[in-house]
Nucleic acid binder design. Structure first.
Length: 651
RNA sequence: GCCGACGUAGCUCAGGGGUAGAGCACUUCACUCGUAAUGAAGGGGUCGUGAGUUCAAAUCUCACCGUCGGCUCCA
C-alpha cells in the first residue's frame, strides 16, 4: 500500500504492515519515539496492521510532540496502570471504566465491602503504579468473541465489564452488530478496552493521583455509586510540576477567594447558598443591573415587576408542581394554602401578559425583570457564586408573532454579543451550544424543524461557530446556551435564548391579529448574563479581580500625604462624585507607601496622591494600576476625563 | 442527596488527651510621612454544633451543620 507522510513523502509498504513497520521505515529514531499512528483522524496502536483505508492517505506517527493525542494516549495508559495497581493492593475490587479526560484520567472502582479509599492511600497506590511503569509492561491487544470475553469476566466476577459487553451486544456499535471485543493486557492486568494504547507503560513519564470522589455507575444516580480516583499524567516530571504550579496559580483567581479579599460578598451558615453583598459588592451588582436596563431599554424592552411568592395553582398550571417541586421552596398561608417561591420568572410574566388584550401591532412585547429567584439546590451542588440558592437573573420574555421570530432571535444574539463584548469576552471565551429536540417533547416535528432552523440561522447571521447539543433542548423548544469557563476550566452556563411554543398554549396567551381573530404568540425566554451572581463570579475569575474601571466599587482612592491634606482630598472626592466617579479618601494617619500598598491590594484602578504641592496647585498625582506613577494632573481636568471614560464604560 | 477531605481570633494558618498561639486586621498612643507595609501597647476565641469515651476532650468516637473536590442536577 502507498502511504503519504505529513511532509508529502510517499512510502510503499507491504499490505499488513504495522505502524511500527511504518515508523521503522521512516527512521529508527522515530520508531523509538513512536506512540501510535493516526489514520483518518483515528489514533491506532503501533502494533496493529495499518487498515486498508490507510492506502493512499496521510498517516501520521503520533509522538510525544503530537500534543493532545499523545497526552490522551498516555493518560489512558495511566488509567490502566492505576487499575492494575489497585487490583494488586485491593483484592476483590471490581473495575468499571477509566478514560483520559481534559486534565488527566480517572478510573471507577467498586471496592470490597468496608474498604474506603482516601488521599492517604495515594502514596501506596502511586508507588505500585510506578513499579508497573518502571517494568515497561507492554500493552498487548487481543480480540475475543463476545462470548469468550463475557465468560472471562464472569469468571473473574467483574460484573461491570459483563454489563458493558452485554450492552455492546444489544446496542451494537455505530449501528453495526458487535461480534468481537478487544482486550488490552499490561503486565498482570487485562481490561475490556477499545484502545488505543502506547506500546508500553514506560511512556508514562510522570503520574500523580489527584483526588477521590463518588461517581454513579453510568452516570445514573439510581445505580451503584463507585469510587472514582482522579489522576494526571505527563511525559516528564517537569511538565507535571508546571501543571501543578498552574493549578496553584488558578487558586489566586478563584472568585471565592477574590470576593473575600476584595470584600465584595460573604456567605454564612445563616443562609447557605445565598450571598450577603457588602456595599462594594452591591455597587458592582447594581452597575450590572443598570447596564441590563440601559441596553434593554435601547432595544425595546420594558421592565416589569412580578411577585416572589405564587399560589400553588400557578405552579400546577405551569407544570413546575409536577416536575420541579423538589427544587422549590414551598410555604403556606395561615389557612394552610400552599405557596411557592418562584424558581423562574416565566409564569409571572405570562400572567402579566394575560392581563392585557394585545393587538398584533403591539408585538413584539418584551418584558424584562431582574428577577429574584430561589431554587433549593442540593447541598453538594452549591459552589460560591456560581451555584447558589438565591439569585437574580437578567431575565426577559418576548411575546412575538411567527413573522417576527427570526428577527427577534437574531436581535437576542446580537444583544448577547454586545453585552459580552463590553467586558472583553471574545469567542475564545464562549462556547455556543444549540440544543435540539429531546426525546420527551411537546409539539410537532414541523414546529421543531422551524424553530431549530431559526436558531441556526440566527447564529450563522451573527457569524458564530457553535456546537450542537443533540437532544439537549427543553421539552417545550430548542435553545442556544452560552457557556463560559472558570479559572479551573470548569464550564458554567450564563446566557440562554429559548423558543417556547408550549407556554402560550398552557397559559392561553393570545393577541388579536389583523384578521380580528385570536392568535397564539410565541414566547422567547432569554437571559444574557444568566444570573448576576454567576456572571460576577465568572468576571472575577477572568479578570483576576481587576474589574473594568466602570465596574470597580472604588474607582479612585484619594491619598492625602499627611493630615493637613485631608481637606484637599475631600474636596477632590466631592469633585469626583460630581463627575460620576466613585471615590474613597484614605484618611488614616499612615505613610503614603502604606496607603498605596493597601490600594494595590484592593485592586483600585486609580490612586490620587495629594501633598503640599498638589494642594497648592490644585492638582493630583495620578497613579494608575499596572502603569504606576503618571505624574501630576489638574484635578478637575483629570476627573472630568475619567468621568467620561466611566460613563462610556470604556475599558 | 451521594463519595472523600476539611472546620482553631474578622482573615491566613500553626498546635494537638493536662485547660489556646502567630502574622495580618482592629483599638489606643506616638509619629505627619511623596508612590507596595512607621513604631509601641492593648482588646479579641466556651477550637462549627450536640452527644459519647475519659480523672481530664480543642485533641479520640459518633451524629448533625457548613465549606472544598467530584458525581447527579443546573443560571
Amino acid at each position: 500500500m502507498k502511504i503519504s507522510l505529513p511532509d508529502d513523502r510517499q512510502l510503499e509498504l507491504p499490505d499488513g504492515a504495522t505502524g511500527t513497520d511504518l515508523a521503522l521505515e521512516i527512521g529508527p529514531g522515530l520508531a523509538r519515539a513512536a506512540l501510535a499512528v493516526k489514520v483518518n483522524g483515528e489514533v491506532r496502536d503501533l502494533g496493529r496492521p495499518l487498515p486498508p483505508e490507510a492506502d493512499g492517505t496521510v498517516v501520521e506517527i503520533v509522538t510525544e510532540r503530537s500534543g493532545r493525542d499523545a497526552l490522551d494516549l498516555i493518560r489512558h495508559d495511566a488509567a490502566h496502570v492505576l487499575a492494575a495497581a489497585v487490583m494488586d493492593l485491593y483484592p476483590g475490587v471490581k473495575i468499571s471504566i477509566g478514560p483520559a479526560i481534559e486534565d488527566g484520567f480517572y478510573y471507577d472502582f467498586q471496592f470490597p465491602e468496608g474498604v474506603s479509599i482516601n488521599e492517604e492511600n495515594f502514596p501506596a497506590i502511586e508507588a505500585e503504579m510506578k513499579k508497573h511503569m518502571k517494568a515497561a509492561e507492554e500493552f498487548d491487544r487481543e480480540e475475543l468473541s463476545v462470548a469468550d470475553a463475557r465468560a472471562r469476566f464472569v469468571a473473574e466476577g467483574q460484573d461491570y465489564k459483563v454489563e458493558l459487553i452485554d450492552d455492546l451486544v444489544v446496542n451494537g456499535q455505530n449501528g453495526a452488530a458487535v461480534e468481537h471485543v478487544s482486550l488490552y493486557t499490561n503486565g498482570p492486568f487485562t481490561d475490556l478496552c477499545r484502545g488505543p494504547h502506547a506500546p508500553s507503560t514506560k511512556k508514562i513519564g510522570a503520574v500523580k493521583l489527584m483526588s477521590v470522589a463518588g461517581a454513579y455507575w453510568r452516570g445514573d444516580s439510581t445505580r451503584q455509586q463507585l469510587t472514582r480516583i482522579y489522576g494526571t499524567a505527563f511525559f516528564s516530571k517537569k511538565e507535571l510540576k508546571e501543571y501543578l504550579e498552574l493549578l496553584e496559580q488558578a487558586k489566586a483567581r478563584d472568585h471565592r477567594k477574590l470576593g473575600k479579599e476584595l470584600g465584595l460578598y460573604y456567605f454564612s451558615e445563616a443562609a447557605p447558598g445565598s450571598a450577603f453583598w457588602s456595599p462594594a459588592g452591591t455597587t458592582v451588582f447594581n452597575q450590572l443591573v443598570a447596564l441590563s436596563r440601559e441596553m434593554g431599554s435601547d432595544r425595546g424592552y420594558t421592565e416589569v415587576k412580578t411577585p416572589q411568592l405564587f399560589d400553588a395553582s400557578l405552579w400546577k398550571k405551569s407544570g413546575h408542581w409536577d416536575k420541579y417541586q423538589d427544587d422549590m421552596f414551598l410555604t403556606h398561608t395561615g389557612d394552610d394554602h400552599a405557596m411557592g417561591f418562584k424558581p423562574m420568572n416565566c409564569p409571572g410574566h405570562y400572567e402579566l401578559y394575560g392581563q392585557t388584550r394585545w393587538s398584533h401591532k403591539d408585538l413584539p412585547v418584551r418584558f424584562s425583570e431582574p428577577g429574584l429567584l430561589h431554587r433549593n439546590e442540593l447541598s453538594g451542588a452549591l459552589h460560591g457564586l456560581m451555584r447558589v440558592r438565591q439569585f437574580c437573573q437578567d431575565d426577559a420574555h418576548l411575546f412575538v408573532t411567527e413573522d417576527q421570530l427570526q428577527d427577534e432571535i437574531t436581535a437576542c444574539i446580537e444583544f448577547a454579543k454586545a453585552t459580552y463584548d463590553l467586558f472583553g469576552f471574545t469567542d475564545a471565551d464562549i462556547k455556543y451550544e444549540l440544543s435540539t429536540r429531546p426525546e420527551n417533547r411537546l409539539g410537532s416535528d414541523e414546529q421543531w424543524d422551524l424553530a431549530e432552523g431559526i436558531l441556526k440561522t440566527a447564529l450563522e447571521n451573527n457569524g458564530l461557530e457553535y456546537e450542537i447539543g443533540e437532544g439537549g433542548g427543553a421539552f417545550y423548544g430548542p435553545k442556544i446556551d452560552y457557556h463560559f469557563t472558570d479559572s479551573l476550566k470548569r464550564s458554567w452556563q450564563l446566557g440562554t435564548v429559548q423558543i417556547d411554543y408550549q407556554a402560550p398554549e398552557r397559559f392561553d396567551l393570545t393577541y388579536t391579529g389583523a384578521d380580528n381573530a385570536d392568535h397564539r404568540p410565541i414566547v422567547l425566554h432569554r437571559a444574557l448574563m444568566g444570573s448576576y451572581e454567576r456572571f460576577i463570579g465568572i468576571l472575577l475569575e477572568h479578570t483576576a479581580g481587576d474589574l473594568p474601571l466602570w465596574l470597580a466599587p472604588v474607582q479612585v482612592r484619594i491619598l492625602p500625604i499627611s493630615d493637613r491634606h485631608v481637606d484637599a482630598a475631600k474636596e477632590a472626592a466631592k469633585l469626583a462624585r460630581e463627575h460620576g466617579v466613585r471615590a474613597y479618601v484614605d484618611e488614616r494617619t499612615e505613610s503614603v507607601g502604606r496607603k498605596i500598598r493597601d490600594g494595590e491590594l484592593a485592586k483600585s484602578p486609580y490612586m490620587l496622591v495629594i501633598g503640599d504641592r498638589e494642594a497648592e496647585e490644585g492638582t493630583v498625582s495620578v497613579r494608575a494600576r499596572h502603569e504606576g506613577d503618571l505624574g501630576s494632573r489638574p484635578v478637575g481636568e483629570f476627573l472630568g476625563e475619567l468621568g467620561g471614560v466611566v460613563s462610556r464604560r470604556e475599558r
